[in-house]
Write a protein that binds this DNA or RNA. Structure first.
Lengths: 346, 346
DNA sequence: CGTTAGCACTCGCGGACCGCGACTGCCAAC
DNA sequence: GTTGGCAGTCGCGGTCCGCGAGTGCTAACG
């Protein structure tokens, strides 16, 4: 674990200057530049001595002998933990984000998609958003629609106006009127409960009540299958942003990352492990377990619905990113998302 | 317009050989290779003469003096129109596709997503799929769910089990029971009609019937806004495939294409213009109006639902693609999609 | 007249080479 | 502890060049 005391104040200032300048320009930063831009009171030779120390203790590295210094993962970590100052997002950005959320559709999927889109845009990176666990979402409404004599479409409205559907075969022909009655009964029974709660009640119910039980089972199935599928699928947006970063001119690295994101399962695991108590979590370079993320960083936080933490929202980009700015913007979108979801009522 | 008569038989065979070899290897093909691989009866000198002719008439070009020949857009066009032989997709591919469609969810969105995924996979390119015009889709079912006293969630089930939702504010507090009655009435009135038909009936209805009319209007709104949004949004999948093609090592070209696809509006226009009577339409390189597609080709066809053509499905990739194979596979996925949609009933 | 062998020519590609410039580490002096 | 000076390192970009693939042309052949 890193401690701020490990670096004296001047070293801290120099490290901070190196990270700031490098994230801005992308060019390894040398002692002369530092002296001129940040430390007019010191000579480049003095700074060189300090830089050499920072290289020795693993906070900085040189790409090659005759180049300037760039931060190591450890250097970025120290910066993020102790040096970074919280930059509030500029008001123009705040306004734009607010406006986007105002025109978002009044349902969970629409809002999460909007969050992904907005976040990708204002961070110029790839955004990631996980959906809530549907098995914990309360059921708002059930509807049964007759398709053919023995085939019915189950429609479920969950928290956040999330709609799930599934087609079920019946054992005997049933009219729409019968289905409507059954739906009315189901509504009275299950409203406000989650799929998890239903599962336990279902097992207490005993083996009778033929069709109705069958439908209930399928309904729970439907919710849980959604979880299995969608939960692993992570919403994302903004690949085009990655192409602009010079660290991805090498296409193979891009391919690795793209594969990781498009398939998503591995990523979902990472996002679910976000320490929920922390404000914003930053995972830097080789701190990532996935090899595809070795030279990337993640900036993640959570969002809430009905005052409970329900999912993760964040970005992935090259290790060299303006952490102060990105953290502020991720936090902003998280807040706006929670707010928009709150406005859905329940 | 090109005519087959413009090239004698030997030139046709040579053009065909050049296209085949180049699409396979990606290396400009020279006279010696042609003589050895395809025309053992002719000397390379003879072939050189023919190649020079084909360059003169614009079917082939040389990247530079000391390189072999590659097809021009015109050459590809001639190949696609007259020389390409229909390659049936291998049975292993057919089986895999069939299997994928069998596990697709029983609704429009799920099936179209599956189509996009499968097509991207078996063509190793980016797939494109447009959704049907919802304003022409017949309404299957309507449901109204009370959210708060003066706020209601409209749920619409359209053809293909496509579900649409919208939140509407009411003028006065209404209970769920009232809403259920209203929904039952609406169901009797509008089932089997399309949004377009409803619009005309709505204007005949006159200004009375307060809430109900308001809900109907919003309902039509909802369907049409879906059209405006979703129709321009084109489903797609398989970016990672593009990175494998050597023509995209230049990242800027990739970026242009990516932008075009991710925003989608321009693309939607192109896809809608697919000549519906043609079996499979191929658009090659500069035949495209969009500058981002100057060095790409599109292979497009349509799919049906309820025996009517409802949308476009196809792929986009580099001009150098195995057209015979791609055309067969696009056709395959189109057929499977239509079939799967047919099984939804209506 | 179409076909072919021979040949001179073109030109891109990859490797070798090199000078410039940026930056460093070290040392001696302050 | 700080600083100026200086020799040393090394990547980058540019130039140069030989190789090889492939061509177009010409003359000869059937």
């Amino acid at each position: 674990m890193l401690e701020p005391s490990q670096l004296d104040e001047r070293k801290q200032r120099i490290l901070k200057a190196v990270v700031s300048d490098y994230t801005l320009t992308g060019i390894p930063v040398g002692s002369q530049v530092l002296a001129a831009k940040y430390f007019l009171a010191l000579s480049s030779a003095t700074i060189r001595n300090e830089l050499a120390d920072l290289v020795g203790t693993g906070y900085l590295q040189q790409p090659h002998t005759s180049a300037g210094r760039i931060p190591t993962d450890r250097g970025y970590r120290y910066f993020v933990d102790f040096l970074m100052q919280p930059e509030a997002a500029p008001s123009a950005v705040r306004r734009a984000v607010k406006q986007e959320f105002e025109i978002a559709p009044h349902n969970l999927e629409g809002i999460l998609e909007k969050a992904a889109m907005v976040l990708a845009q204002i961070t110029e990176n790839v955004s990631l958003v996980t959906a809530p666990e549907t098995s914990e979402s309360r059921i708002k409404h059930i509807d049964l629609v007759s398709l053919e004599a023995q085939s019915v479409l189950i429609i479920l409205v969950l928290e956040g106006n999330l709609i799930k559907q599934q087609v079920v075969g019946l054992e005997r022909p049933t009219t729409q009127d019968d289905l409507s009655r059954m739906a009315a009964m189901l509504n009275r029974k299950v409203r406000g409960q989650s799929a998890n709660e239903l599962t336990t009640r279902l097992s207490q119910l005993g083996p009778d009540r033929g069709e109705q039980r069958r439908i209930l089972e399928r309904l729970v199935d439907s919710i849980k299958s959604h979880q299995a599928q969608r939960q692993t699928v992570v919403l994302h947006d903004g690949f085009r942003n990655l192409l602009r970063h010079p660290e991805f001119v090498d296409v193979t690295r891009l391919e690795e990352l793209l594969e990781l994101i498009e398939q998503g399962a591995q990523l979902a695991g990472i996002l679910q492990q976000v320490a929920f108590e922390k404000d914003v979590e930053v995972i830097i370079g080789r701190e990532n377990t996935s090899s595809g993320l070795r030279e990337c960083s993640l900036v993640l936080t959570t969002y809430k619905m009905a005052d409970r933490i329900r999912g993760t929202v964040g970005v992935v980009g090259p290790t060299r990113m303006p952490y102060g700015q990105i953290v502020a913007r991720v936090r902003l979108v998280s807040q706006m998302t929670s707010e928009a979801l709150g406005n859905l009522g329940n």
